[in-house]
């Protein structure tokens, strides 16, 4: 890919007479970044691709043996790995649906004449800017069964959130919804404010119901931006690590990133973890591809 940069650009451009030519400047500006990313992102991935075909363990001095596709075969036939993927899928669905419902709902409320709208919006956006790890930590305090304010406020007594295997994943998802609904809200607001006012006026003149107006005018026009929010959050929820790792240690919250972390850095099955990393990587790249398509689509408007 780097060679693509080195196509010819007029070396006799106007500014080339003095100082560097545009071609030189362009290469000088772009190539270091590309090289940096190749060295620190692509090269490591090639390195781990190699290890994914071995039984290498970073904890032992034994040399790596080539095992072919064995790691991949075993991983794809491992019901436990599939259950990690199933947990991840459940988490993605609960948290993204929650974020879209809350985020879009709040955006609809905010998309009116509201005093101090700017200030309120900024305050609402605060959670998504915070560190996931630290958010996870203080939600532990909120979820505490004996002195947490969540149980106290909702009158739940000493309800167990995080140490209850059935509840823990939802607790993590609720925290994620709290953190990231503002993101969906932010993008939805941008979409909503771009809907031309005259469409609503025309609908009002035609005595269209608010139901009809919402589904025929608002939703279709906001949909592309909402899609960006949904795809991005899906991708991020799929990769989730920090929140679940800090909040609980239940087997029912072992999302794929946590499994990968444990396999690589606690069980030291380095070769196998590289193979699992590749399986995850391919899935992420597929979603990224869709995401970028939508980004470019919205950009063109």
């Amino acid at each position: 890919m780097a060679t693509a940069v080195m196509t010819t650009l007029d070396p006799n451009s106007r500014s080339a007479a003095r100082g560097m030519s545009d071609l030189t400047i362009r290469n000088l500006f772009i190539i270091p970044t590309i090289v940096f990313l190749i060295v620190f992102n692509i090269f490591p991935l090639i390195y781990s691709l190699g290890y994914s075909f071995t039984d290498f363990r970073a904890s032992s001095a034994a040399p790596a043996n080539f095992v072919g596709l064995q790691n991949y075969r075993e991983l794809l036939n491992d019901p436990f790995i599939w259950s990690n993927f199933a947990i991840t899928a459940k988490y993605v669905i609960v948290s993204v649906v929650g974020q879209v419902v809350v985020g879009f709902g709040v955006a609809l409320l905010l998309n009116r004449d509201i005093p101090l709208k700017g200030l309120l919006t900024t305050l609402l956006l605060l959670p998504m800017m915070l560190s996931m790890a630290v958010v996870g930590l203080f939600w532990k305090l909120l979820y505490d069964p004996s002195f947490g304010i969540i149980n106290y406020t909702l009158g739940l007594g000493s309800f167990e959130w995080l140490s209850n295997p059935d509840m823990a994943l939802y607790a993590v998802a609720i925290t994620d919804i709290w953190m990231w609904s503002p993101f969906v809200m932010l993008l939805s607001l941008a979409g909503l404010s771009a809907v031309p006012k005259h469409l609503y006026e025309a609908a009002a003149i035609d005595r269209a119901g608010s139901f009809y107006t919402f589904f025929r005018i608002t939703l279709p026009l906001v949909a592309p931006i909402l899609m960006i929010a949904i795809i991005f959050r899906t991708m991020e929820a799929f990769k989730t690590f920090d929140l679940a790792y800090i909040l609980t240690s239940q087997p029912t919250t072992e999302v794929i990133s946590i499994r990968l972390y444990k396999m690589a850095f606690q069980e030291w099955q380095t070769g196998r973890s590289c193979a699992l990393a590749y399986i995850v990587l391919i899935m992420i790249l597929a979603i990224t591809n869709i995401y970028v398509k939508y980004l470019n689509k919205v950009k063109e408007r």
Binding site: L45, S48, K239, A277, L281, I284, T288
Partner: peptide
């Protein structure tokens, strides 16, 4: 952009080594 989307743990394994 795709380099940004990589899950940290995926990149961390080879980087650690």
């Amino acid at each position: 952009l795709s380099t940004r989307m990589l899950p940290p743990v995926v990149v961390a394994i080879p980087m650690f080594l």
